[in-house]
């Protein structure tokens, strides 16, 4: 039997740079209220959201990703040619073939980097980060670009008062590269497919070609509704707060980090109430900075953690070298939590 030469990776991996892109258009709750019977006060008290960004026709999944990635690459101090792989997590890019990652890799000027998309909902950033760490340590790529990007405004039912206000658009990206010290902890991740109905797309795409439109949902004008993301609010809240707090604690334990050692907590920006309850359930000490980017960004699914990370660093609320707990959770249901050193 011939001996196969193994690949040579780095001892460890770290996040080297982060970048974000928020669409130009800021949408206040007043705009949401044009289509639903609710109030600014109700929306703020149930979600903590005051404004969100919605993308224009020009702010495509690819365009937003390229903007965010350019910043992350510059922040990492490397060039695009050094990137060996591009991982894109999204649920709102509507052309499935080819993967949007390939166009992004090309337009960024990578040297034929491996490129692919993943689907892991609001846990997509953590899933991508885990893959990237594996690639760097295993040696299949020296630098990996991980992008979380969504245009959830395209998947929002503006007549559903439970979700119309919730979602936003944007892109966040990080560069993961080699390190002599561990700066990304063990990932605690998993899936609970028995709860797949709690967050889902209202109608599968193939329902639209069957010919029988009687099963498709209609809007108030009687027109067929484009699919949207819907959720069972109370069930999601219970799972997110109480089950995910356990997962977050497991990630801290796995990394050997006590709450006292923690500087920053960056949960997926699902809902301010979930964030506040998680902080309470986890009994995080006062000194821990908590990301609350949702107030002005809404829920941007896979993009929310890198966007919140970038804003904390840009506003000086967190600094390079800080120890941060990140946790993503969402449709699947899926989740991923880990402890990282901020770039």
């Amino acid at each position: 039997m011939s001996k196969i030469k193994p690949s040579q990776g780095a001892p460890y991996a770290r996040i080297m740079g982060v970048g974000g892109y928020r669409p130009t258009r800021v949408v206040p709750n007043e705009v949401i209220l044009e289509k639903i019977d609710s109030s600014d006060e109700w929306i703020r008290s149930r979600s903590g959201i005051a404004t969100r960004h919605w993308a224009s026709d020009e702010e495509t999944v690819a365009a937003m990703s390229i903007e965010a990635s350019g910043k992350a690459i510059a922040d990492a101090g490397i060039s695009a040619e050094q990137i060996g792989a591009v991982v894109v997590s999204t649920v709102s890019h509507f052309k499935q073939t080819p993967a949007i990652a390939t166009e992004i890799a090309d337009k960024l000027g990578t040297a034929k980097a491996a490129a692919f998309d993943i689907s892991a909902g609001c846990a997509g950033f953590g899933y991508g980060l885990t893959l990237a760490k594996g690639m760097v340590v295993e040696g299949s790529a020296e630098y990996v670009l991980v992008i979380g990007v969504e245009r959830l405004s395209d998947l929002t039912d503006l007549e559903d008062r439970a979700t119309a206000f919730l979602f936003g658009d944007g892109a966040g990206a990080v560069v993961v590269g080699p390190s002599q010290e561990p700066h990304i902890g063990p990932t605690v991740w998993g899936s609970e497919g028995d709860k797949s109905e709690t967050i889902k797309q209202t109608v599968p795409w193939d329902e639209f070609r069957v010919g029988d439109v009687s099963k498709l949902p209609l809007d108030s004008k009687g027109d067929i509704k484009f699919p949207a993301i819907t959720q069972e609010g109370q069930a999601v809240f219970r799972w997110a707060v109480f089950e995910m707090a356990k997962v977050a604690q497991q990630a801290l334990d796995a990394a050997g980090i006590s709450p006292d050692d923690l500087d920053v907590f960056i949960p997926h920006q699902a809902n301010m109430r979930i964030i506040d309850s998680m902080v309470k359930t986890l009994k995080l000490p006062e000194h821990v900075t908590v990301a609350r980017d949702i107030e002005t960004t809404g829920n941007t699914s896979a993009a929310s953690i890198p966007l919140a990370m970038e804003r904390l660093l840009a506003t000086g609320k967190a600094k390079s070298g800080d120890t941060a707990l990140v946790i993503g959770f969402g449709a699947g249901l899926v989740y991923a939590a880990t402890v990282v050193t901020l770039p």
Binding site: F237, R238, V241
Partner: peptide, 11 residues
């Protein structure tokens, strides 16, 4: 007690 606080009460 709104619908989300109710979940906290229940737990």
């Amino acid at each position: 007690v709104d619908s989300l606080s109710m979940v906290e009460v229940v737990v």
